[in-house]
């Protein structure tokens, strides 16, 4: 960790746990703030720019999923990690829809958590991933996150993806063709040709690539299902 210290906001109603997390991150030179509730977090959030927000789900007052949605309204580009004692399918899906970076189990795997914080602070290459399939999206987020310097930003809808794109200068984007609120291709075109005339690599994923054949110049098409090593290789070239 170089330049400015990494900043992390932790939200959990269990004081003993947040105290421990502060102690651990303090040792690593990370700037940590703690909120005991979603309401308190919303007050603290605007104080500064956060490299990472970590929130529990079950809390008195607004829960972590609602908090996530509100934070993403204010600052779509801030990565939010959701942690929960039991990630049932509904929680997972809701977190994904609202743009959580990932859903992790409690007790936290602290080694992995610290690694994530280091990655988030060092990441200089934001990559947008848009897919409404929860499982595929989180897999791609994982795979991309392992690449040096890459910070994946997952989004389940065009709407969230557009808000993200408005505030984050993505180096590359990976977009599913069919999304719940529209056609991924239109977003791909917007992202590929920047207002300033520069270009960004954009890959469109589809289970039916024949329909797109020859239709687009700059946009790359990737047929689902794709071999992961090929995708990783391709992204490495791009990034």
């Amino acid at each position: 960790m170089n330049h400015a210290p990494t900043s992390v906001l932790v939200i959990d109603d269990n004081d003993d746990l947040t105290e421990n997390i502060v102690e651990i991150l303090d040792d690593l030179g990370v700037y940590v703030r703690v909120a005991g509730s979603g309401e308190e977090a919303l007050e603290i959030f605007d104080e500064r720019r956060w490299d990472l927000v970590v929130t529990d789900v079950r809390m008195p007052g607004i829960n972590g999923i609602e908090l996530l949605a509100q934070l993403k309204e204010r600052s779509p580009g801030t990565p939010v990690l959701v942690m929960t004692g039991y990630a049932d399918r509904d929680t997972r899906a809701a977190a994904h829809r609202s743009g959580a970076l990932a859903v992790v189990h409690k007790p936290l795997d602290l080694e992995a958590f610290i690694e994530l914080i280091e990655r988030v602070s060092a990441a200089e290459t934001p990559v947008l991933i848009v897919d409404d399939d929860d499982a595929l999206c989180s897999n791609l987020t994982d795979i991309l996150g392992e690449q040096q310097g890459v910070l994946p930003h997952p989004a389940a809808t065009l709407e969230l993806a557009r808000r993200l794109a408005a505030c984050v200068d993505f180096h590359a984007a990976l977009i599913d063709l069919r999304l719940p609120d529209g056609d991924g291709l239109s977003l791909a075109r917007e992202l590929e040709r920047r207002a300033d005339g520069s270009r960004r690599p954009v890959i469109v994923m589809t289970g039916y690539p024949e329909a797109l054949e020859g239709a687009e110049e700059g946009v790359e098409v990737l047929a689902k299902p794709f071999p992961v090593p090929n995708l990783v290789e391709r992204l490495r070239e791009i990034v």
Binding site: N14, L17, N20, I24, G85, H105, K106, P107, L108
Partner: peptide, 14 residues
């Protein structure tokens, strides 16, 4: 299960 995972988180981080 949910409730137990909170104290477990504290023990584990300590």
């Amino acid at each position: 299960g949910h409730d137990l995972r909170n104290p477990l988180s504290v023990v584990q981080s300590s």
